[in-house]
């Protein structure tokens, strides 16, 4: 029993260390276990027609970040709908004379009012605009002392689906710069360092169904085929289990007779 518990303790320590490693790699891998595939209930500024009825408007965020002699302190802020999370590092906004705080505003925006991302890329979901001003002067902040880490949720629907997603940044919404992105399709979230204030979008190359270019598909496989493959997989899995069970029962019977 003592040996079993000692092994358990060693495994527990290894688990805690490995969890710390994942959390250090990206905020997307924080937590004790990444599992379960939690589907996202995405809120659109301007939803596709088929989602209009059920859509809820996305949330804005207004955050007051206290300023001291070193600038702002490290903190995490997010909108109430959880669609955008901003990781502000120590000194991201530097100190300013006679100012007491930074007001950070995060606003969802219809991306159709901005330049398209270009190439084969399509925008996934809303654009987000990040602006900041000093308090009490209300002076607008133009630049960051260091990048801010941003995590954005994106939709995945029957007509808009891609295998990989990239965060794009633009200071004014006219031209886009791809950011070094960590994508987590299971969580439908992407994370990157945003070099300045301005606009942010998630973009990807949707794969199209060859016979109907308006329909998204994975690897060119249309949704109906995906449904049939899943159904076939379910049948195969249960059928194989029943076959293994019957063979095992037969072996037990043969052994008992002997």
């Amino acid at each position: 029993m003592r040996r079993t518990l000692a092994v358990g303790l060693a495994v527990l320590i290894a688990y805690a260390a490995l969890a710390a490693w994942s959390g250090w790699l990206t905020p997307l891998a924080r937590g004790p276990l990444l599992d379960g595939l939690l589907p996202v209930d995405y809120r659109w500024v301007s939803p596709p027609q088929e989602l209009e009825a059920a859509n809820q408007q996305p949330s804005s965020g207004r955050f007051v970040l206290p300023l001291d002699e070193d600038g702002v302190d490290k903190q995490v802020v997010f909108t109430s709908d959880g669609q955008i999370t901003v990781f502000v590092d120590d000194g991201t906004f530097g100190p300013a004379k006679d100012e007491r705080a930074v007001r950070l505003l995060v606003e969802p925006v219809d991306p159709s009012g901005l330049s398209p991302p270009g190439g084969e890329l399509e925008v996934f979901g809303n654009a987000y605009e990040l602006t900041a001003s000093l308090h009490p002067s209300n002076d607008r902040i133009g630049a960051l002392e260091r990048p801010i880490q941003v995590l954005l949720a994106y939709p995945s629907t029957s007509t808009l689906h891609a295998d990989a997603h990239t965060l794009l940044y633009s200071p004014d919404g006219t031209s886009w710069q791809p950011l070094d992105t960590t994508d987590s399709p299971g969580q439908q979230q992407a994370e990157a360092d945003m070099p300045g204030l301005g606009f942010l979008i998630v973009a990807g190359e949707p794969e199209r169904h060859a016979e109907d270019p308006s329909v998204s598909a994975i690897g060119g496989i249309p949704p109906m085929t995906v449904a049939l493959l899943v159904a076939a997989g379910i049948g195969l899995l249960v059928g194989l289990a029943l076959l293994i069970r019957s063979r095992a029962d037969r072996s037990d019977g043969d052994r008992d007779r002997r």
Binding site: L12, G31, P32, P39, T85, Q189
Partner: peptide
Amino acid sequence: AGVAISLGTGGRPVPAPIVAWALPLTLLAA
């Protein structure tokens, strides 16, 4: 205890706009 300690070392999970029925699905997945 391992789950609780790893939550401490790995960090709090980030917010996400998950749907209401995520809870039964995630328990079924487990």
